[in-house]
Computed example of a mutant assay.
Amino acid sequence: MKNKWLAIPYVVWMAIFVVAPLILVVVFAFTDNANNLTLDNFSGMATYIPAFQHSFVLAIAATLICILIGYPLSYFLSRESLMVRKVAMMLIMLPMWMNFLLRTYAWMFLLDDNGLINQFLSNIGLFDLINNLFGTRLTSFHMINTQGAIVLGMVYNFLPFMVLPIFSVIDKIDPKVIEAAQDLGASNAMVFRKVIFPLSLPGVLSGVTMVFIPSVSTFALSRLLGGGKTLLLGDLIEMQFLGNAYNPHLGSAIALVMMVIVLVMMAIMNRFGEGEEGVAML
């Protein structure tokens, strides 16, 4: 009974800062400026279908890149000594100690046409070599204000969310299971394909969820690294609440639809995760 009283501050916090805002979002999504029930907010979203497409395409691209980078990194780290793991994890988490916007501004400086990357390439003579070979007048690579820069920002900021769950799952795989497979004649490739990868899939699915959700809802990256040329869902929602096109009812409807889509995808990922755990146990 005493332990239940300890949960009261948490319940109050959740009610004020989680439940109440969600209720307001639902109320605003189904009402108009006169507080009348309406579905016009949802029908008006058809104009912004390209924003949905851009958000999901870029988020999927960033998630796939994080898998391609994060899984091998997690796998090799799980094979290293404890000291190497600690140093590697510190380096992976170190950027997270810095403010999100500061990290993004740093990438703006690096990717600019006159930024550090282009200056370095110019100093080593790469542009002169390309111009001599192909007869061009290239002075820099245009990387900033592109969709590629947005994806790069997503990967850089959210890669730790892919590495940590995968590493945690692989690190907990019982070495006896791997030894048993090797004793039965399985090659290293077969051990990875039949044992390690299936057992690590729950970590992969957790990483996919943790990377995809913030990627699909981000707004600062598209404005700073994309130059505002690519409208994403986060930008669209922000515009409805803070921009000149002030319409909190439409913004709430878009936010509600996005939340439903994310919850459905999380449910699907969890279902696959449960299935993979069952297969692995068999």
Rank of each mutant, 00 (worst) to 15 (best):
M1E: 10
K2W: 13
K4T: 10
K4R: 14
W5S: 03
I8D: 02
P9N: 04
W13C: 09
M14G: 12
A15E: 02
I16F: 14
F17E: 09
F17P: 08
V26C: 03
A29G: 05
A29N: 06
A29M: 04
F30L: 01
D32H: 04
D32A: 03
D40M: 05
N41M: 04
F42I: 05
S43L: 05
M45I: 14
M45E: 06
I49T: 14
P50W: 05
F52L: 09
L58C: 08
I60P: 09
A62P: 06
A62Y: 02
L64H: 07
L64N: 10
I65T: 11
I67P: 10
I69A: 03
I69Y: 03
Y71A: 06
F76E: 05
E80C: 11
S81V: 07
L82R: 15
K86F: 02
K86E: 01
A88L: 07
M90N: 00
P95V: 07
P95T: 09
W97G: 06
M98S: 15
F100I: 11
L101C: 10
L102V: 15
T104D: 00
W107C: 01
F109L: 15
L110D: 08
G115E: 11
Q119N: 13
L121E: 00
S122L: 05
N123H: 13
N123K: 14
I124W: 05
I124Q: 08
F127W: 01
N131G: 05
N132Q: 15
L133M: 11
G135I: 00
L138V: 05
T139Y: 00
T139K: 12
S140K: 06
H142R: 13
I144E: 05
Q147E: 15
G148V: 05
A149V: 02
V151F: 10
V151I: 15
G153Y: 09
G153A: 09
M154Y: 14
N157P: 03
L159A: 07
P160L: 07
F161Y: 15
F161G: 09
F161N: 10
L164A: 12
I170V: 15
D174A: 02
P175Q: 00
I178Q: 11
A180W: 10
Q182W: 05
G185R: 03
G185W: 11
G185L: 09
S187R: 12
N188Y: 13
A189E: 11
M190D: 12
V191E: 07
R193V: 12
K194F: 03
P198Q: 03
V204H: 12
V204R: 01
L205H: 06
G207L: 11
V208W: 05
V211A: 09
F219L: 08
R223Q: 15
L224A: 08
L224W: 02
G228W: 01
L231T: 04
L232C: 02
G234V: 00
E238P: 01
L242G: 06
G243T: 11
A245F: 06
G251N: 09
A255M: 10
V257N: 08
M258A: 04
L263K: 04
V264N: 11
A267V: 14
N270M: 07
F272G: 14
E274P: 06
E277H: 04
A280D: 08
M281G: 04
M281A: 15
